[in-house]
Design a protein around this nucleic acid. Structure first.
Lengths: 193, 193
DNA sequence: AAAAAAAGAATGAACATTCATTTTTTATAT
DNA sequence: ATATAAAAAATGAATGTTCATTCTTTTTTT
């Protein structure tokens, strides 16, 4: 058990190092040697936990994506009204992205580049099911505009990725007030009235 | 003159090859040798036009960003009403991104990764001035919600990048109708009243 | 003392960049 | 116009480095 414990710690350290280095330098400038150093581990040790660099990045992506969606949907209850559910999920997503900016950015980079395998990406997308179900219900009840889920995503969740990015670059550090405004923009764009 | 002509052709071929390879494989898997081959040029020749790989990517970014904004604002006339101007610009941006998907995607990748130098990125952002001016006017006239330009961008222009990406992956190929819906979502989110 | 985990050094491939030559273009003189 | 030499552009083959990965040895755990 002590062994397993130790292993998990190392694996996490490697994943964290990967996130930090890929965020700051990009995949192309995040060599295994640097990742190992940051995780306080020998380069050879990485290969006890991951098959290859590609595998390391894929697993990091899935790990973060899971943490993200778990947090986003944690308090979701199908019994709740559509608008209230959406609001809650939206704010939890915002919270995750702004609190754990590093992880949010890493996801954005994975989603916008050919960095990870298509297979892992597909796997990651499955996590969004609860949100899609909610939208389905919202459309059926005439609360949400009857447009493609891709459009709904583009105008509600995705803007948060952009805002997180400008925050990372210190171009715009959103306040509590800004987050509320952002929610209003998101909801105003998809609500049916 | 014939010489200069030829040079420009080569440079353009190199830029196009860079866009195609970076889009498909990512920066880290787009070696100079491959770029040279795709442009029908010797690797050594690249260095007659660009200082380094970094310079090649930076210049490609700026070239595409300029083409993008030139197209977007080409027909913009400050005399026009705010709403009409915005609509026109929005549709031109959409047109560029969906027609020249390769270039649009390349920009998205540059904007979401540490691929290009911060300096070049700053340079590219300056091109957006006309849109910011328009928003300023719109806010003054009480037509557009009085929120940060970053929010307005996140909820109007940026969603198009996401939609372009899902199109590239063939997950969702937007129709004319979808584009109109998208515009409506964009406008509904930022319009006042 | 056997097995597992970790390490550092070694390996070989891939890469960005440069070098030495060749080809093409331009300018000049007939 | 044509021939020729200087200049510029382009090339394929080096060069030296960096990197992912593996190998051998050491340390830690069981």
């Amino acid at each position: 058990m002590a062994k397993l414990q130790k292993s998990i710690e190392k694996k996490e350290a490697l994943i964290n190092a990967t996130i930090a280095l890929v965020n700051n330098d990009g995949f192309h400038a995040a060599p295994m040697s640097k990742i190992a150093k940051m995780a306080n581990v020998s380069p050879a040790t990485i290969y006890l936990y991951f098959e290859s660099k590609q595998d390391l990045v894929n697993q990091t992506y899935l790990e973060v994506k899971n943490a993200f969606t778990t947090y986003a949907f944690e308090a979701y209850d199908e019994q709740m009204a559509v608008e209230a559910s959406f609001k809650m999920i939206w704010f939890r997503i915002a919270e995750f992205k702004f609190r754990d900016c590093e992880r949010g950015l890493f996801l954005a980079q994975c989603d916008n580049t050919p960095m990870i395998d298509e297979e892992s990406r597909q796997e990651g997308i499955k996590n969004l099911k609860p949100l899609l179900d909610l939208w389905k219900k919202g459309k059926e009840q005439g609360i949400i505009k009857p447009v493609s889920d891709y459009l709904l995503y583009a105008y509600t969740v995705n803007p948060l990725s952009y805002l997180m990015m400008v925050k990372k670059r210190n171009a715009f550090v959103p306040t509590e007030e800004n987050i509320n405004e952002a929610y209003q923009l998101a909801w105003d764009s998809i609500k049916l009235t």
